[in-house]
Structures are given as C-alpha cells and as structure tokens.
Amino acid sequence: MRQNESLHYLDNAATTLVAPQVADAIYKTMTEHWGNPSSLYGPGQASRRLLDRARAAVAATLGAGAGEVFFTGCGSESNNIAILGAVEPRSAWGKKIVVSGFEHPSVALPMQRLAEKGFEVAFIAPGPDGSLDGEAFLAAVDRHTILAAFMQVNNETGAQVDAAALAQRIKAKNPRTAVHVDGVQAWMRVPVSLAGIDSYTVSGHKIHAPKGVGALYLRRGHNIQPPYLGGGQEKGVGGGQELGVRPGTENLPYAVGLATAASLMHENAARRTPHVAALNARLRAGLERLPEVTLNSPADAVNEVLNLSTNCVRSETMLHFLETKGVYVSSGSACSRGAASHTLGAMGLPPRAIDTALRVSFCGDNTEADVDALLAGLEEGLATLARLQ
C-alpha cells in the first residue's frame, strides 16, 4: 500500500491510507450499483442486496447481528447518535452520566452540552499512566445513572480498557444504565466483545477505508431517541436499516468500502498483529537511547499507539523538523488541531511534558525503516533544535 518509500507516515491514529482494494470496490459500486437502495425497482433492489451484504460483513467483525449495525458518516456522528439518543428516553428516572475523563471531543462535547442542560456528568480521570481506574468508574455508577460511556482504546496514548468486563459490572450494578463504548481506535486492532455493551462506534478511515463512513452498533432492544429527523427514508419504502437511526439515502459505495476494509484487516490479522508489536518494541528500545525522552503510554497500551515527550523541544517544532525528514507524526489527537492534549492534562502530566508530546501510530504497512527514520530524526532534532528554557 505504500505509495512513496521516502515517506515515513506514522500518524495512522489520525487517518490511514485508503487500501487500493477498497478504492476499487468503491469505484465499482459507484459505477455498477448506482440505484437507490430504497427504491423498489430492479437496480434499487440490487443495491439493497449489496448494502445488506456490506452490513452483514461489518456486523460479523463485531459478533453482532446485521440488524444491529447502522452505517453513519463517521465515528463522531456515531458517538453523538448513541449518547444523545440514549439520554432522552431515560431522563424521566435519572439525570446522572458517568464518563471517562479522557474522551474524544465527539463524546466530551456532548457531555458538556448535557451538563449545561442540567444532567449530572461525572468525569472519571485516568491515572498518571493513562489507564482508566475501573473501580473508580464503577463506584460512580448508582441507581440514578442513565448512561456510562468510555473508550476501549484511548486515541492519544493507546491505553486500553477491558470494555466487556467493565460493561458487565456496570450492568450488574444498575441493569437500566445504558453502556456506550467508543471503539474507533480499538476496532480491528484488539478483540471486541459486546457483552454488556448497548452501543459501540467504529470508523472507516482508521482501517484503510475513506473518510466519511462509520458504523454504529445498537444492541437489539436498546432504546434510543435519535437526534435526527427527515431525510427521505420513508417508512415502508425499501425497509432501510438506517430508518429511525440516521436519515438520508444510504452511502452504498462507502458502506461497501468499509466492509471491504474490515474484511482485509481481518484476513491480515495473523501477519499484522505481530508485525506491529515488533515495530512498537523497536521504537521503545530505540527511545531508551534518548535520555530526555519519557513515555506517556502505559506498558500495556495497544501496539499501534505510542505517546512520548521529549521534555525539551516543543511538539510543533519537532513535528515540523521531522516533516523535513519525511517523517510524519502528530502532537496529539488530530481533532485538537494543535491544542494542548486534553488526555495528557487529565493524566496530570506537567506542562513541559504536555508541550513536548508526540504521538506515533502504526499500521500494518509500516516498516522498520519508518521506525529508524523517526529515531534518527528525533536524535538529530534533540541535538540541533532550540530547547525550552
């Protein structure tokens, strides 16, 4: 999939290159299956059958039923639908929401909006190593808790949560509490179990599908009030699966692209998983030669993400220096657009560590040469760039 051997792209948690097979599948769908899936005539029904196959393929990767998976425009939209949709039907008996304190903006900002509307939102901060304290999270859940939400894999540090285990403990304490999990950085990278989970979000552009497509798992029987109205999928016309969850004509080409990417990731897992683990280990070993550098990711973080601080060169300065070497990393979540990391701040890291943090994120197409180019760039940058006073 690599398009340029001099490009060392290590920001896959922000977005991934679209796989050629995915692009081909999208193009073929656009040109051969142009019918509206909600139309009752032949071309429309052919599109409907292809959409159903794509839905079933995505559902299979989650261990879900096809009728529990709804295509959306992205993970952020899925999070909004799940969170805002779950709160309204439960507000008659409770106003409390429990959420981990290092969430993606598509979770954190809806929580702020709900707090402004009078809901009691309890944010559970991560520990100094970036891991969520499951006991503290569980302790905050009570009989008035209508929603509990947390990430399975943090997008900045790669810290993991045993989502199914925590979800089942929440349900044991309050069966009426809706449990939502942001699985965008976890899907196709770590095992997914939906036990105890009512809603789960995934995104296409993290797994070599294009930007602009995601999916939302909603457990059969899970009651939500979707925040959207209208869009043309009228009741009884084509039986669209997104009916009642997300209005509008289905984006069939991108749904097929998402299913194709997920299938490719599943097929390549046996090769990809140990390969990425070896790259992560190589990077960690190389960073030990740079005494100024400290790691912000916990030891058991996913191998795809490693967050570090140089503690002496500002993130933006180092990021652009690395770019001159053909090495591309980020200073945090792409959604933060250069703002100080919310996650690292929630972990209680000192300002210098936050101001000098970099996030490295791998995919299965990265190589040892990418790691070595990054290490060489960091070493040169630390020796030549202006340092914080």
Rank of each mutant, 00 (worst) to 15 (best):
V69K: 02
S38N: 08
S361H: 14
V329A: 04
A285S: 14
S131E: 08
S38F: 11
G101A: 09
A14F: 07
A255P: 10
A56V: 02
L62H: 07
Q152S: 10
L40N: 10
S361I: 06
R387H: 13
P291A: 13
A369H: 07
V276C: 04
S336V: 03
T356C: 08
R271P: 03
A357Y: 07
L132W: 06
L147V: 05
T310F: 00
A262V: 06
D365I: 00
R53A: 13
V181I: 04
H320E: 06
G345W: 01
G35A: 06
V190D: 11
M265Q: 13
Y217H: 01
W93Y: 12
A339H: 15
L194V: 08
V213Q: 04
I81H: 10
M188W: 10
F71T: 11
I81R: 04
A285D: 08
G94M: 15
H266C: 10
A285T: 14
L166V: 12
G118V: 02
R272Q: 04
Q225T: 11
A122T: 05
T343H: 12
P227N: 04
G127D: 04
I124Y: 03
S333H: 04
I197H: 02
W93C: 12
V245E: 00
R337E: 01
N174V: 09
A334Y: 05
M265N: 12
A13C: 09
A172E: 13
T273H: 06
K173D: 01
W187C: 07
A383S: 14
E88Q: 10
A353R: 12
A215D: 05
G134E: 13
G240M: 15
M151S: 08
K96C: 14
R189A: 05
V153C: 14
Y27T: 13
